[in-house]
Design a protein around this nucleic acid. Structure first.
Lengths: 261, 261
DNA sequence: TTTTCAAATACCATATATGGTACTTAATGG
DNA sequence: CCATTAAGTACCATATATGGTATTTGAAAA
């Protein structure tokens, strides 16, 4: 909190965003003093900030003298994402088809600011708690099928930069934490044309993902399929891999991509 | 734009939100001067605001000297919605079941700041263009099944206030624009226990919706079903109405509601 | 009822963010 | 190539948002 480094910014906006992000991170409603204790803003100013954000719908207050929470405006504003939306439209048909064919959870993800972000999702039959939410982000490229695809298609120096920034932290006991092992995995991903993840992010979940390219040949996203281990045997890997690759290729075609291999 | 009425607010934040909302409303990427021409903010200050918002991920810039668009952060922040999320969790199973039984589009909506907001959606087989996006808001309570349910369960004076604010504008040639007719419709809704809308918001689309109550007996949302006219005949109305009512009742039970009728 | 505490308001001198002007950079087109 | 335009930077006097202190309100407990 507090990147007041740059001169060409507005302190008041930084503070407002600090407040928003703190409330969001807490995942529940917060009292005024809880917020006060966790952001470095004087009482009077904080009151003004909270007021402003409430008036504009960026925060909600449960009652007159109540608790603060993130406003529904954020759901609403989460739309005006023009180019990512194009991707969503293009991918929709293939995702739906894949969902009907497999009954599994199908996801559309993209890379933004070196993090994976979930853009769209068609849920399978797993229980609610297993799902990520649309819009959620994951910085651990090394632990996710989608991330491996991104790593596999990245410029080597960008790959090094990204991997250096987050390292290879273990999310489960299956996470790849050895760089040589990861290099090998990346090569396999390149060879197969799809990425695979075996309980490396979450215990009990397997995932495959394949890349989508736009008309300029740029890698703009991935279509992924995920399922619990008991409904996604290792024997199914090739089959599901082929399927997500097909779905992703169809989406690429939709975007005007022509393979030049 | 520009509710600088209240004293206890931060002007800089108001401006930042003006910028965000303008960019969002345009539904595409905007150049600096396009933004300049449409918000009442001096050049220098606007630059600072855009900078700050970009640094914090609330806006994205396509390149160094590029176009501005809404940042993906909004997708991400659209989650920290604690209590609405509880509703989503509670409704999930019933919605899924309803979706499988009918193949239609199932939606979870709520009322926020006198507008209907779409919280969750399980899509049917209609084409992409027909769908609303999660988070989208509709102020026209009189033209939507969900809105009619809300009107039917509202305190009469709140109902009057809300209806007075927006009036009864016609969205299609089927929209109810006569108050007496609407009163009657509201009574029917109360009697049936579900709301119905026949192409009143969008030509060619029919919808039904039933209310969800929480443990305090408060009306907190609706489960709705929508479909194109050719797959939702008027003869099906009773059947679908019963189905959404069942789904909504199950969800209410999930939330700890006990009917005291 | 009164007490207590959190939350919000009021006031105002001062620190500070603002927004003119002028300048630099980068991309476009002739 | 130079000319033109849009985007961004630098500077600094001044208007203005800020954040102390003191006060008021409201809700819940005693």
């Amino acid at each position: 909190m507090g990147q007041n480094d740059n001169q060409n910014t507005v302190p008041a906006i930084h503070r407002a965003i600090d407040v928003i992000e703190f409330i969001s991170s807490s995942q529940r409603e917060l009292s005024f003093s809880e917020i006060m204790d966790n952001v470095d803003i004087p009482r009077q100013s904080l009151i003004r900030i909270l007021n402003t954000l409430c008036i504009r719908g960026f925060l909600d207050k449960s009652s007159q003298r109540g608790l603060y929470r993130i406003g529904l405006k954020f759901l609403y504003l989460g739309h005006g994402l023009p180019d990512k939306f194009e991707l969503r439209t293009a991918a929709w048909k293939s995702m739906k088809a894949l969902s009907q064919k497999t009954g599994k959870t199908i996801e559309l993800s993209s890379l933004d600011r070196d993090q994976l972000i979930l853009l769209e999702q068609i849920r399978g039959s797993e229980e609610m708690s297993l799902y990520s939410r649309v819009g959620s982000v994951i910085p651990y490229l090394h632990a996710v099928s989608v991330g491996k695809v991104y790593l596999a298609l990245m410029e080597p120096d960008k790959r090094r930069r990204v991997l250096k920034k987050i390292g290879l932290p273990a999310m489960t006991r299956h996470t790849i934490t050895d760089m040589a092992r990861l290099e090998q995995e990346i090569q396999e991903t390149q060879a197969r044309g799809y990425g695979f993840e075996d309980q490396e992010l979450r215990e009990g979940v397997r995932r495959v993902a394949a890349p989508i390219f736009n008309s300029n040949g740029k890698h703009v996203g991935c279509i992924g399929l995920s399922a619990a281990v008991f409904s996604f045997e290792l024997d199914d890997l090739d089959q599901y891999g082929r399927m997500v690759r097909e779905a992703a290729e169809k989406t690429s075609a939709e975007l005007g991509y022509v393979s030049n291999s």
